[in-house]
Design a protein around this nucleic acid. Structure first.
Lengths: 340, 340
DNA sequence: TTGTATGCGTTATCAC
DNA sequence: GTGATAACGCATACAA
């Protein structure tokens, strides 16, 4: 690999002149500049990003954390679109993406890993298992490292998050069911702590309350975004409540599991029971029957997140703020008027 | 960020001693080592991967190229599993993943970008548009940079590829149709140059030939792995040949498009026409009707690719060799005995 | 067992 | 306009 020294020697100038010429400084003779550029091309020279990173303290690299290693964001259909947008936008801004995967470093924290690698900023896209490390999140928040999280309420001087309006989305879902005549509506939630889960539960509550329907705890189960657990939850609710006529699952994947379980119990969807999901992943429209759900603007989330991160990186005084995107009810074939 | 100097000062030793202590060299007094480790912990020290990369000429980073920017591997269901495996395995081996996205560098070549970033090795996972840059591929092949491509026949001293046995897979698909009584079988291909596409076409030919069925060019269309073009291709074939009873599309996504087009023409699948795909992506089993297809071992491909790359990186004398994985016929609901 | 000196490839601060 | 020179943070050959 040709270095800046090789060019300097061949051009008969000093390395500093080469550096300046190649970085478009104005205080360099047009002729020598041309010569240098010529030679650089000839030697197929490209500056070492590593060396440059060391002296500049900027690497043009964005870090990317996924939650746990198994369910990694790559294979989670919801996050895929978010990541696609991040890729696109970060690329436009002149950055590469570094995905933290090294398992020999599992004792290190988010912030430490970022500093070690010298990334200019970082995205946190944590699925299920990854959300527990509270200390680490606080450390990151206070680290001064530009950071944007998806669906996770991080807030610091250079740290913010992007989410959907989960409260209104959930409310919309449940109001839709109520308009169809349902009153005994089951809720398949995530967990007790995640903000997404929490907000959606509150949306469910609000919709019921506004409609004068009493909350009934026996209609509520947490399934931790797991399809397996969603099946269990469905069975439990079915066993406890003969009169349930609709299910609201707070992810499409869980909604699929609910539907399969209902069908195993010889219950038809939507004739016997209506089901609505959340996310509007691709499979929602090709599923049979096509799933009624709440659509999140996944691509826009990725774009907004990247936008915030870029601004944080490029202006040390910029204070990013949380962004909440609207959702939309998408009516397909798994919800219908109550029949009994 | 605490550096090795800070530790040295605080411990009253030289930086080289600190470096040796932290890197588990044996020639360092156990007591001073302990003291150093203690202080390192205290200062929350982590070595700068950038600085280390500069001197070691190793970055513990694997590069990752996706073909074009739009259809990027992230959103292509086939490559997702491959990438998931890569992530997992590379992580186990102590590497992070760098995705080349920087669009300010679009004039640079694969090899140049790799050297610039100092990645230790690189994966090439090129979808559609990315396969055209032949010069770049040759440059990469000869660059000495450890490299493994997926579905792309790269071969060099430190460069190889991983693929499925596309020939046998395609043959299996077509023989399946023939066993069901079909003789007028349409072929929806990719393009004329990609090896995957080429091999699958040959498998189609071989199956026909072995079964004593003449090849009929009017049954063959290229659709470049595009769903849109697959629809067009289906219409063309349908218009030309009233007697076609089966379609073999060389990707599941194209098979879905074929089925939709058939249904628009009031043709039932599989009652009127059988359809078989290739890949066995997740959606294949949830599609309605569930798609008969040829399953590729996507996860195993990613594992094999990573394995080859790791060996190439860690042993300069290792000569990687192409790996071809077997496929499997998965019979679902879109193929049936011929009815006419 | 430890310290000194050098270099990795680049940018930046000065003189000249 | 240009050239020494230091610095970035670390690893290592060689001395001590």
């Amino acid at each position: 690999m040709a270095s800046i020294h090789d060019i300097a020697k061949k051009a008969g100038v000093s390395v500093s002149t080469v550096s300046r010429a190649l970085n478009n400084y104005q205080d360099v003779n047009p002729k020598t500049r041309e010569k240098i550029i010529e030679i650089a091309k000839e030697l197929n020279y490209y500056p070492s990003a590593v060396a440059r990173g060391l002296v500049m303290k900027r690497t043009q690299t964005i870090g990317l954390f996924f939650g746990d290693h198994m369910n990694s964001g790559f294979d989670h259909p919801f996050f895929m679109d978010v990541i696609s947008a991040v890729r696109e936008e970060a690329g436009d801004a002149g950055y590469d993406l570094l995905i933290f995967t090294n398992k020999h470093k599992e004792r290190a924290t988010y912030a430490t890993l970022c500093r070690e690698r010298g990334v200019d900023g970082v995205f946190l896209i944590l699925t299920g298992g990854g959300k527990k490390k509270n200390d680490q999140l606080i450390e990151l928040q206070e680290s001064g490292i530009p950071c944007v999280a998806i669906d996770l309420p991080l807030e610091g001087e250079r740290c913010t998050y992007v989410e959907s309006n989960n409260f209104l989305g959930a409310k919309k879902a449940v109001l839709h069911l109520i308009e169809l005549g349902h009153r005994n509506i089951a809720f398949i939630g995530g967990d007790e702590i995640a903000k997404t889960s929490f907000d959606r539960l509150n949306g469910y509550r609000a919709a019921l309350s506004e409609s004068g329907i009493d909350l009934n705890a026996s209609y509520i189960e947490m399934a931790y975004f797991s399809e397996e657990l969603a099946k269990e939850a469905t069975k439990k609710i079915l066993a406890r409540n003969k009169d349930v006529t609709a299910f609201f699952a707070i992810s499409d994947l869980m909604a699929f599991a609910v539907i399969e379980t209902l069908q195993e119990h010889a219950l038809r969807v939507p004739e016997d029971i209506s089901v609505i999901g959340f996310d509007d992943i691709k499979e929602a429209s090709t599923f049979e029957p096509p799933l009624t759900t709440i659509s999140q603007q996944k691509y826009a989330m990725g774009r907004a997140a990247t936008n915030q991160l870029m601004k944080s990186i490029e202006d040390i005084n910029y204070r990013p703020s949380p962004i909440t995107l609207p959702t939309e009810l998408v009516i397909r074939k798994t919800t219908d008027y109550i029949m009994r």
